[in-house]
Amino acid sequence: MTEVRSNATRIWLLHAAVIVLLLAGNFLLPEYHRGMFSRALVLATYAMGYNLLFGYTGLLSLGHAMFFAAGMYGAGLPVYHLGWDVPLVFATGIAAAGLLSLAVGVLALRTTGVAFMIVTMMFAQIFFLATLYFTTWTRGEEGLVLQPTTRAIEFAGNTISLSDPSTRYLVALTLFAIVLLVSLRLVKSSFGRTLVAIRENEERVRMLGYNVFATKLLAVVFSGLVCGAAGAAYGLLFGYVGSGFASSQYSILALLYVLLGGAATTLGPLVGTLFMFYVIDYTSGLTSAYLLLVGVVLIILILFFPKGLLGTIREKWLPWLP
């Protein structure tokens, strides 16, 4: 039992250390890299939401961009058109993603395997087309630019501007840290155990008395909420809301980050996102066709490293890694 205890301690220490290191990054990173990290932290949060469903529950969605974008539009549209406050629209963004994931989950979870992948891809495609179709409000591909004045929070007489680089980094980190700790808590809980068991053998879980459909639906909604929070934060922090974020490419990116970092590892999404950010940054001098790189990495991963970076490390050296 002492081994179990010390593992738990080790796990909390590791996650705390990661958060502290990232916090230090705000003061140590050069401006350019701090900007990169701000974006990567928000997208890593998105990937963590995806990981809950894909990594832990074993449901491979090809349409998560719709939840990210639902959060983004759910927050961005009321700011842009109605001038609502930042905290309020952050909530409406999350709510929009939650409702969408509930509706999509109820329908898509009637299918399994390949059909689930295609159905989620198609629902996301409909959402993407809708962002183009309702161009009066969304301005389609061109998108909406949220002015810095609309992206400020009045707090105790002070104005906190989300367009300030340091604030932006800290807000992104706060969101990331909260989601990281909540997911860690979740995957170590009874609910997390049930999700993993569903991934391993759904029929057996049903025969232990679980309502598998309801459990999976809960996982879809939870995943949708996290992705929506990331989408809302992305729009508010970087001041832009466009249909590109709803395109299939963003669904694939979530899959890529998670596969690369290691599916069903709590820190995998962060590792995968940062790794991919810097690979693309590094090669951007060589080719503008960065999607080529995405394609190559996807195939290499699926062929040779299906467990990803942290998944391989866990298998070989650190079996206690959550």
């Binding site: 491979l60 090809l62 395997g113 390949v114 992948m117 694939i252 899959l255 596969l259 999607l291 080529l292 995405v294 394609g295 190559v296 990495v297 996807l298 195939i299 699926i302 062929l303 299906p306």
Partner: peptide, 14 residues
């Protein structure tokens, strides 16, 4: 089935 979908997505981009 699932791995091949991911791989063909990669092929699509390439």
């Amino acid at each position: 089935p699932e791995a091949t979908i991911v791989a063909t997505i990669g092929m699509l981009y390439i």
